[in-house]
């Protein structure tokens, strides 16, 4: 990754030198160890602040909405994109929130991002550095070096990723990492939940949703949530009441998930930012699974010209026949 960081800075510097990039969205060192944060580099000199390492994984794509609004008409926006952000960017492109000409995408063939908390569990401290190799990760602490399996230390969402490299980019750092199929077990969680009784499933969601704080972070980071005014904040009609009763939590989570049905790119940003661990991807993936099954979309999370819910076919099945999980 160190090599990639150097390349990235070079790419960004060249982009500023060309003069067409107004802002470059990437990462910089955060206040805490192993927690890089998003940065908006606005001049050539500040390029050296950018970092790219095993910990820099905060989802960036949604920032494009705001930056595109602020940018000069003919200027473009640079952005570092791992595979997941690549899909997020595609989402915004297909939703016509931004235009491809406006973007300068520096793609990264992403081997996965290390979860600092998982790493701390293994090392007894937050590691200083990490290197993701083929099947394992080398963690560097202040006193030792530790080699662990990828499964033990990568972010949950990275372990299920089958899109490590963005599909669109203007420059690519490192090697292209081939697409999955990593996720043969992708819908395991959904299937387990489908298998239990309706009552048990209801209780499961009540418990999950009761923790929900309604901070709206899941919506705010979602590249598929790009409405100027969110229906959840509409006052007339007021779809979502402000009370956090169990009933309203269902309305919130139903609406959030269903409004991105067929448009979710499975980037996992929503679940990652949730401060109380609501398993939001179990909702999103249920919809992805059903979109795949019902409308024969082999990779329902990949954005395309057409939206599953914006079109139809004359011989579509009636998906309401049969139990959950059956097609």
């Amino acid at each position: 990754m160190r090599q990639l960081q150097k390349q990235l800075r070079q790419e960004a510097e060249d982009a500023f030198a060309d003069g067409h990039v107004e802002v470059f969205i990437g990462y910089q060192e955060g206040f805490e160890r192993a927690r890089p944060v998003p940065v908006f580099v606005r001049d050539r000199e500040s390029v050296q602040e950018m970092v790219l390492n095993e910990f820099s994984g905060v989802s960036l794509s949604k920032y494009l909405l705001r930056e595109a609004e602020r940018a000069q008409e003919d200027a473009s926006i640079g952005i570092v994109a791992r595979g997941c952000d690549g899909l997020g960017i595609e989402r915004l492109l297909y939703d016509q929130c931004i235009s491809r000409e406006q973007l300068y995408i520096v793609g990264v063939g992403c081997p996965g991002v290390v979860d600092p908390e998982k790493a701390a569990q293994l090392c007894g401290e937050i590691p200083v550095a990490a290197e993701v190799e083929k099947q394992q990760v080398v963690l560097q602490t202040s006193s030792e070096e530790l080699t662990v399996a990828k499964e033990e230390v990568l972010r949950d969402k990275c372990l299920k990723c089958d899109d490590p490299t963005p599909r669109i980019y203007d420059a690519l750092l490192g090697e292209e990492i081939q697409r999955g199929p990593v996720r043969q077990n992708r819908f395991d969680g959904v299937e387990q939940l489908e298998a239990v009784s309706d009552d048990e499933r209801y209780e499961f969601w009540v418990r999950q949703f009761d923790r929900c704080l309604r901070c709206f972070a899941c919506r705010n980071v979602c590249p598929a949530c790009s409405c100027v005014t969110c229906s959840l904040e509409e006052e007339e009609p007021q779809w979502l009441k402000r009370s956090t009763s169990s009933s309203e939590q269902f309305m919130f989570h139903f609406t959030r998930a269903y409004h991105v049905a067929g448009r979710c790119v499975s980037c996992g940003a929503c679940e990652e930012v949730c401060p109380v661990g609501v398993p939001l991807m179990l909702l999103n993936e249920k919809l992805l699974k059903d979109v795949g099954e019902l409308f024969e979309e082999p990779s329902p999370h990949l954005p395309s010209e057409t939206e599953p819910l914006g079109e139809f076919s004359y011989d579509d099945p009636e998906g309401w026949r049969g139990e959950a999980g059956q097609s």
Partner: peptide
Amino acid sequence: YLTRRRFSLAKRFIQYMGIE
């Protein structure tokens, strides 16, 4: 036809949330 698509998905989703 749009209803069919929409509710094919929604029906399953509502059941997934626990409604019989």
